[in-house]
Structure formats: structure tokens, C-alpha cells
Design a protein around this nucleic acid. Structure first.
Lengths: 264, 264
DNA sequence: CGACACTTTGAAGACGATCAACGCCGGTGG
DNA sequence: CCACCGGCGTTGATCGTCTTCAAAGTGTCG
């Protein structure tokens, strides 16, 4: 069992980074712990926004349903991510999507009033949230661009590379952390399309066997994934991946590419 | 000629709303005025990020170019919008897109150090920026969903309705504020597709004659645009539009829909 | 062994992108 | 004044990719 209340752990989350320990201690006094089992709903579309929450363990899917019963995954949250910030900042009284635990999860909850207060008082917290939102917005832009310019298989290739880095998996072989159905939904494509895309990435240096992924030829995979990406230096995760596989230290990072990606 | 330095004008911009007049006075001392002519470039991909800027007049297109020479419009900024906030918050030393004046434009520029400073000191400024980014992120989510679930003509219909409200045009007849080429690019579709979509929306209560748009049957247009939108109460702009046309006061706004949209 | 969830594969269909041709208009120059 | 040109928008035909529908395969767990 993870020590939920470890200061170091909390301070490693982007939202709390740079906060004084005293602030975090103060934090914890106002917080509630919430546990969810795999498959348990956290809230649904239309529910009142009660809390600002930080995900400490597990994973949570944010999704909506279209009228024809289709499910649209907006995001998959992983440890360190936050829930409710957007609604609070938009002054939306109700949630605009459903939240479902897709692994056993633990959250720290804070009443929304707490966040509103502390954003005014604590500039570090406000800056952290600003950085997070800016990042999110950047990712959204990038993925929108990808959806418009790349073929499904290229998106999958790009996704797998980012996934590997962000989850700190071994690039030489790792298991997908979610079902393929979930990933397809996250990528905004049909399961069938995703399945066929997985076949295709095999021709580009990525081995796929069941749920096991391994990067056999990262340069080929990289080349394929980024062929139509406008980010010149390619994604930070992609470079990270190459470094880990000891292929090429990018000669000079220089004007850094900003293709970081919440891949979840 | 607009009085650029009118306090009321600046305070009406989302980014400066709620700031004390003294703060705004202070602001102006640090600012530089920059004018651009229609067609003039403000900065290009890869340029160093030097300023945080507020657009006071005109319009600016943010776009990238793909390798095959295609142009991708990320956003069209209108009066009151800001430039450079994202880069500063992401600590990106260079711009990740091009900025081009598509009307004669006037900006107020602040050195990036200024923004960094003031975000710490001035919580209202930080909160305004947070609200703006949250809103931007929300729009991005919505438009991504639209691109995935609606046909081109539905997106166009939705866009025209939001455009009308955000630019405060007369719903019974107004001119498109940008070229069709520009709008198509903004919507992430080809000019031909946009052109055909305009033909199709005619069958759904929207008259299109050259660059003139008029909403003849807002209920039909609304029904068409939102048929596949998961936002239950539909866009705030759509409701606003219906009110302006005196069709139906929405019986009860209730849990407010959050489909506001920077349509530019 | 059978039930069930999940995934793969195949074939048909829909939508938007692409290529190509044309119409329209304003400007420029002879 | 007219001829020519370029930018912009429309329309038609074709093509590619993703979606959809259908069926079969794989795995797990009782």
C-alpha cells in the first residue's frame, strides 16, 4: 500500500510541485481520501461539481456518450492528474462528462471552495495549474492536428511511443496498460481501425504481439510516426525514447520541441 | 481611431477584467504599441518568444505549415485575445506557429518577464489567465468532438451560429468577417468541402448568398447543428441566438450548458 | 465444456480529400 | 476600352481512408 500522505509523493505531482511543505501539510488537513474500485463510477454527466481532486493511484476515464450510444473518451487520467479544475475555473456548476475508474483508484478530494481560495493566496499553486492547462491545451492542439493530417496507423505509432515514455515502460517490451477498446476510444477511432493500425505499425519497426509492444527499430517507427507532424524536432517523448534505446543522442536539443504529450 | 489607452476598453478584455485601475495604469507604462498591416507577419515558427501581447484591433491568424506545404490554422484571434501566454507558461523559448495579421491590427506588447512577474504578484491576472486557458481547453475538446461526430455541413452550421453571436452580428443578415478560404482552414476542412457544406446548410434554415449569411429558420439550423452534439443544453451561443431572434426563451437555463466557443 | 468479453478479419459503404475545369471579379497594362 | 492575368470560389469526378455491419477467432473463468 502506497503511503498516500508522503510529502515527497505529493510534491512530485505537477500540481503541487514547488509548494512549501507547510502549504502541503495545510492541504492535507482539508483533504478527504476517496477510493474507487475498478469499474466504479466517480461521477456522471450533470452531477454537481463538489470537489477538486488529485488522482494518487489508479486510472480514471473521462468520457461522454453521444445520442446514438457511442462512447467518446475525452481523457484517461493517470497518477498526478487532477479532476475538476476546468469546471471550477469555468464556473460550471455541473460536470460535463462521466468519470469512471478503470483501475482501482485513490483520490485526494478538496472542496471546490478550497481551490478557489488557494488559487488567490498561493501563487505557486496558480502557476502550477496554469502550466498544466497550457500543457493540456498544447496537447489538444497537437492531437487535433494529428487527427487531421496523419493516418490511423501513424497516430497509433506516435501514441505508443509517448505512452511508453510517460508510463516509464521498458521500450524493449511492455504491456498495454489498458484494453485495446479503451485505447481506440482514447484515440478517437473505432476498435476495428485500431486493430488494423496495429497490424500496420508492425511494418514500421514496432512489434505487436497480443498486448505486448516492443520497439524493434525506433528510427523507423519514429520516421513513420512523425512523417507528417509539423513539430520540427518531433515530440519530446520520441527523443526521450531514442535516448533510452541509446540510438542517437539528439545532436543538440536547441530550441526545444514542445510535443510533450499526456498520453495517459 | 479607437482610443487604445482607454481604461474601460482594456478592462473589458477578459485578461484584464477585475483588475484595479491602478494596476492597469501601471500596466500601460510597461507596454509597447505595435501596429501591423493586413497581410503583415507578426512572427514565424521558430522565432524567439519576446512578448506577451494583447490584440486591441484587427485579427490575427495563427497557423502552421505541414511538410507538403499545407496550411493549418490553429486559431483566429480577435480583439481581446492574447498571444504568447501559452509559450511563456510552457517555457518554450520559441514560437511554435506563425502569426499573420489578416486585418490591420494593433497590439499592446509586454515583455515576457513582465507577465511572469505579475502572475505571481497579481492573483486577478492569474485567475483571468486560468479562466481563459480553461475555456480554450474546453473549446478544443468540443471542436475535437465535433470533428469526430458531425458531418462537415453540421460543423459549418454550428460555426456560423457561434460566429454570429461572438462577433455580435445581426442574425437576420451579416457578412462573413473573413474569406471562405480562411474559414475553411479554421474549421480544418478543404475549401471545396466548405463550399459544398454551405450549399447544404441552405436546406436547414440558413440562407447563404455570397458572403452574406442569414438565419431564416433558427430552430431548423439549431436542430441540424446540434443533432449529434453531446452537450445536452446545446451551445450557449446557440441559445443566445434563439433569444435574439425572439424564438424561444429557453424555458429554464438550469445547469448551464458549457458550449461557449471562441469562434473568432 | 460453454458462456462471455474482447479482438481480429472481411466486405460494403460513406464522407472528405484531391485533382481538374470553369466562372467571377478586380486590377494592370497595352 | 479591351485583353490578360491572378486570386478566389464553385462544381464535377475520382480516390482513399475510416466507419459500419457481419462473422469468426481467442482467451478467461465459472
Amino acid at each position: 500500500m502506497v503511503d498516500l500522505y508522503s510529502l515527497e509523493r505529493l510534491m512530485s505531482f505537477p500540481i503541487f510541485v514547488n509548494l512549501a511543505s507547510s502549504d502541503i501539510q495545510e492541504l492535507l488537513l482539508r483533504s478527504r481520501k476517496k477510493t474507487l474500485e475498478n469499474g466504479e463510477s466517480y461521477f456522471s454527466f450533470g452531477d454537481k461539481v463538489l470537489n477538486f481532486s488529485v488522482l494518487c493511484e489508479g486510472a480514471i476515464q473521462l468520457y461522454r456518450e453521444t445520442r446514438d450510444g457511442h462512447e467518446l473518451t475525452k481523457e484517461i487520467l493517470i497518477v498526478g492528474d487532477t479532476i475538476g479544475d476546468e469546471e471550477i475555473l469555468l464556473s460550471s456548476p455541473t460536470h460535463q462528462f462521466n468519470a469512471l475508474a478503470i483501475k482501482d483508484a485513490i483520490l485526494l478530494e478538496f472542496p471546490i471552495a478550497w481551490l478557489k481560495e488557494n488559487l488567490k493566496k498561493n501563487s505557486s499553486l496558480a502557476l502550477n495549474l496554469l502550466a498544466k492547462l497550457a500543457h493540456k491545451s498544447h496537447i489538444a492542439t497537437m492531437e487535433a492536428e494529428h487527427k487531421g493530417t496523419m493516418m490511423a496507423a501513424q497516430q497509433v505509432s506516435c501514441f505508443l511511443e509517448r505512452l511508453c515514455v510517460l508510463h516509464d515502460f521498458d521500450p524493449r517490451g511492455f504491456e498495454l496498460p489498458y484494453s485495446k477498446t479503451m485505447i481506440a476510444s482514447r484515440l478517437g477511432m473505432e476498435l476495428e481501425t485500431f486493430s488494423r493500425a496495429l497490424s500496420k505499425v508492425r511494418e514500421h519497426g514496432i512489434r505487436v504481439e497480443g498486448n505486448r509492444i516492443s520497439f524493434e527499430n525506433i528510427l523507423a517507427a519514429e520516421e513513420y510516426a512523425c512523417a507528417d507532424c509539423t513539430i520540427v524536432d518531433n515530440c519530446a517523448e520520441h527523443n526521450e525514447l531514442k535516448e533510452r534505446l541509446n540510438i542517437t543522442k539528439p545532436k543538440d536539443v536547441g530550441p526545444q520541441s514542445k510535443c510533450r504529450g499526456d498520453v495517459s
